[in-house]
Write a protein that binds this DNA or RNA. Structure first.
Lengths: 399, 399
DNA sequence: GCACTTTTGTCGACCTTTGACAGAAGTTGC
DNA sequence: GCAACTTCTGTCAAAGGTCGACAAAAGTGC
């Protein structure tokens, strides 16, 4: 049997990945194949369930053409956002639409088996609630609050995750859920979520998360930049010009020691305002505290200094500011914009936009869902699945 | 005729791109195709000249298998390195080996038509000298000393290239040389040359060029990062912590105002040492001037401060230090290493190497040649060429 | 209702891929 | 030096994918 059988099928499917409905003729034009060949592939894709007819197109003077589109409910994916003190598990369809979610206040320091155990149980129960089978779940994406070696799915020396160093998260969950598991850093995943949902036409985006820590996810040329060891985008310990504040990392003048939640709270206490946590800073800003506004604007300026370098270095078209501190405070955004536009090269800022996160606290899970979907629907994986379905007797071999 | 005719042919060719010789069986194993199919594709590739037999493999107990490899002399490419005051044009084979080169001391400020005119003439004469036809040249790569929009092949507001703004370099040369022209920033091209020749197994590399200006080329995940407008890697105007030196860009504390050639020369004059140009600084360092050593080490530290951010942000496995000032002075390298290893995160520096450029002043042309070769031998271009050759009557259509 | 337009499913022809086979080329052991 | 064995090469028919064409179906506009 010809092994290239389903090759072009995944090519056709790739065109439908954006969710838009298309006629057979449109697909033929876009793929370069003949209409008759496209029809054959569409039949294959419909028999697997990944594609479904969605009515007819308007007539252009003759018979109406039938429209086909990705069938989001064909399979399920799971997105998981693990924070320092919470875990969110969301069940979603292939279009990225959330179907059901679970949340637990769980300390990541309790260790991998406790956290991942809860996640596995949550997935099983969400799937059961929807009266679907675990076999329908084709991939799991998961974001962790620390450095992750994406290729192997293991955290590497994560500061706030004791017991997780080199733990094989991907394999542990795969054994229990029976599908591929993609692991990445939480900020990377937020960047992915933000880019795919709010900025689909932007190929170069930087997401800055400002909360108890500060980090960035960099998407360049449409691809997430992870670097050699998966630690790319670590803004928190970049030195801010003009600051000598001591940082827990041992160096001084780090951005995190100046502009992250704890540093802002400390600064407010110096001004005589009671604030001990990131949450309280957010609350003060929401109440309109003048001191909070002032300190947040200064923090924004410090972040802006560092982002100005990022702009010169990476040349993004959009910077998205996210994280708990960004949501509550326009001052942070104002401080950032002020410095970035002054300190970066004119050529790099000419078409640069600095925007607030669109997904309200949701970017992490959204990104995890995207990570899972993009793996499950990638040509390689789809080819293997189509091959397996066309020959149920043969074992699945991944090349 | 089936349009997919030569599809798999380029796949086989892709395997031979690394220059290593292989037997039909090896290619079959690596490509997943049957031996007989591979044999057919090899025949096609030999008839076009891109692949040639290179003797027999050692016997493993039976008949010796014949070896096939990329035939470097099948076609020619051109690499061009345009500097502020010089132009180098090199004719190379498909293996990237230089065949012949021309150099001119030509000021880039004389404008595009003068410089490009000289380049076109140089190419013609080099090709003629080698008794080959201009038709054998399949691609030209060219590096320019300023921001370039790679996709369109036009410089964008280049500071030291008056008259070049938005000039269609690619089209101008294509019309006169009759083959595709790839344009990029000179530092990007140096990074490409360095990575492909000296660090082929490294996917994440940053090249820093230290000369009259300072810039960086970033290769991440094996791909050159150009950013939204092609200005990525602009280190020169990143702010150095602790410096307030005024810069020609209008800001203060820029790296270029502290650590580039003119700044170093100015600093030496403050110390009573006569130095006016980058070249004189290099000469002083070569003579073992203590003042030059001291100033260069300080410059290295300043560059190290900025590179420490780059390491946190991009997480490369190798930083290559190139440019005129790097070649002459170990002190620069020492200063850089000292600060980078102290200021970057331990996780990011754990496997980080900081190396001197291996290609002695040659990285620019090497990278331009690589750019040309990788375009000319890319599957898309090769498919089109094979299709055109199999149907000489039909016009070539690029999809 | 009729002429015209457009889509759809089907079919034979063509091309690529495959696995098998016989012959060629080389090695090893006696 | 010869026989037995191993491995590679070229050829070929069968199988599968793709294509263009065609007739039937479905819809529009007058």
């Amino acid at each position: 049997m010809c092994l290239t059988a389903c090759m072009r099928t995944s090519e056709i499917f790739d065109l439908l990945r954006d969710g838009r409905a298309r006629t057979r003729s449109e697909l033929a034009r876009e793929s370069g194949l003949a209409r008759s060949s496209v029809a054959l592939h569409i039949d294959t894709l419909m028999s697997v369930g990944y594609v479904a007819p969605v009515g007819d197109a308007a007539s252009t003077g003759g018979r109406r053409a039938s429209l086909f589109a990705l069938n989001p409910s064909a399979r399920l994916v799971v997105g998981v956002d693990v924070g320092a003190t919470h875990v969110i598990v969301e069940l979603a369809d292939l279009g990225g639409t959330g179907i059901a979610a679970s949340r637990a206040e769980l300390d990541v320091a309790e260790g991998p088996e406790a956290v991942l155990g809860w996640i596995a149980e949550a997935v099983r129960s969400l799937v059961a609630q929807q009266q679907r089978s675990l076999d329908d779940v084709v991939a799991v994406g998961i974001g962790l609050p620390g450095p992750v070696e994406h290729a192997t799915g293991r955290p590497i020396s994560p500061p706030i995750m004791p017991g997780w160093h080199r733990f094989d998260v991907a394999e542990w969950l795969r054994e229990r859920l029976g599908c591929p598991v993609l692991v990445d850093n939480d900020v990377n995943i937020m960047a992915l979520g933000e880019q795919r949902t709010a900025w689909p036409d932007t190929e170069d985006l930087v997401l800055v998360k400002v909360a108890t820590g500060i980090g960035a996810g960099i998407i360049s040329g449409g691809r997430l930049q992870r670097g050699a060891r998966g630690t790319a985008g670590d803004l928190g310990h970049v030195r801010v010009p003009g600051s000598t504040a001591p940082c827990r990392c041992g160096n001084e003048g780090c951005l995190e020691a100046v502009a992250a939640g704890p540093a802002i709270a400390a600064r407010l206490r110096e001004l005589g305002v009671h604030a001990t946590s990131t949450g309280e800073v957010v609350a003060l800003a929401a109440q309109g505290s003048l001191e909070a506004a002032q300190v947040l604007r200064d923090a924004g300026r410090a972040i802006g200094e560092v982002l100005a370098m990022v702009v010169n270095l990476v040349n993004p078209s959009v910077i998205v500011v996210g994280g708990r501190l960004a949501g509550a405070a326009n001052e942070l955004h104002a401080g950032i914009s002020e410095v970035v536009y002054r300190r970066s090269l004119p050529l790099a800022t000419e078409h640069l936009r600095i925007a607030a996160s669109e997904t309200k606290g949701d970017a992490g899970v959204r990104g995890a869902v995207v990570l899972a979907i993009e793996h499950a629907l990638s040509p390689d994986v789809l080819d293997a699945e189509l091959l397996a379905l066309s020959r149920p007797d043969q074992p699945v071999v991944m090349r």
